[in-house]
Design a protein around this nucleic acid. Structure first.
Lengths: 177, 177
DNA sequence: CCTCTCATGTAAGACGTTACATGATTCA
DNA sequence: TGAATCATGTAACGTCTTACATGAGAGG
């Protein structure tokens, strides 16, 4: 379960509460990862029980905003994280793209429908590219790995965009089956 | 749930039984998708109830091999599939890569560990690339969309490989934090 | 005969999503 | 006062994975 380790990773940077964890994860991984409160809070609860993190409740003190719970990583948490990061990941990656899922079967649909959906996806890739280029700029001063990751995101996005543009041409030139 | 539609898509090409469906899906999407029998058989059962497919049991007839159940797509199934393929997909893609998940946090680990894991991943990308190039060659005569998809797979793989090679250089040249 | 592959299936549990419930603070 | 945002949480449901159970056929 990688949400657990993502949280431990983020807590290396600074203490966070659940709501903020979701924001940060969405900013960093939001283009390829969805996180729900329904996952975050139960996870934090479990990690507390495992003593990977500690909590400090900021109820009615001088801080502004509604009451929140600030989580910090423990020594045990750092150890568990360190073991994870030095262990070999499973090799398989999971790319689940609802667009590509349809795309591969477009031959059984109508060319006009295919082109309409391709058009929509091109816009999607363009919007996403802007977002990722902003991220890249924003993270310029971060550590080398975060930077490299952001660069990969931009490269990948550009490649998908170029691929889909040339695919659109090929589809338009193709004969109706 | 897209497994349902993948199965309907495959059944447009030819009738299949559950075991074969898994093989075909793994050959085509195996690098980005894992499918278990625990998903396939219950899905087929449900799709039968929804009358999207029909079944023909090949028990003790002249065919060789153990008894199997051959599934075909119905007219209703084709209709449901056609509606799906003409509908706009959700935009978000999901990229869940255990390697990248670790990579982004390598700054909190040791450089030697990072390099070891990067090395392993390079091999993984190389193996995968060979596999995808074979697929591309194999699908040369298939329809335009399947071809384009296979090309994307190869392009993406090459990009990841090149990115990780240059990342390795940058990591080696970087100062230990 | 034994093992491997082909083939179908179920059950338990982990993981993820959606929807709902609650309440405080902020700002118009 | 009312709506929007910040914040925490739970319950129900759906999906996915892992492990197991079963059995036929093929090949040594």
């Amino acid at each position: 379960m990688s949400l657990k380790f993502s949280i431990l990773g983020l807590l290396h940077y600074r203490d966070l509460h659940g709501y903020r964890i979701k924001e940060v994860l969405e900013q960093n991984f939001g283009h390829m990862w969805t996180i729900n409160f329904g996952q975050i809070y139960p996870n934090l609860k479990k990690m507390l029980e495992e003593e990977l993190i500690t909590v400090e409740e900021q109820n009615c003190l001088g801080e502004k905003g509604p009451p929140r719970k600030l989580y910090s990583i423990t020594e045990k948490g750092k150890q568990v994280f360190a073991d994870w990061i030095a262990s070999s990941p499973e090799k398989a990656m999971l790319l689940r793209d609802p667009f590509l899922m349809r795309f591969v079967f477009f031959g059984f649909g109508r060319k006009a429908d295919a082109l309409k959906i391709v058009e929509e996806q091109l816009e999607q890739y363009q919007t996403q590219l802007q977002f990722r280029e902003q991220n890249l700029a924003k993270w310029q001063q971060n550590d080398i790995y975060v930077n490299l990751m952001a660069e990969l995101g931009v490269k990948m996005n550009k490649m998908f965009l170029e691929w889909l543009q040339s695919a659109k041409q090929r589809i338009m030139e193709s004969e109706e089956s």
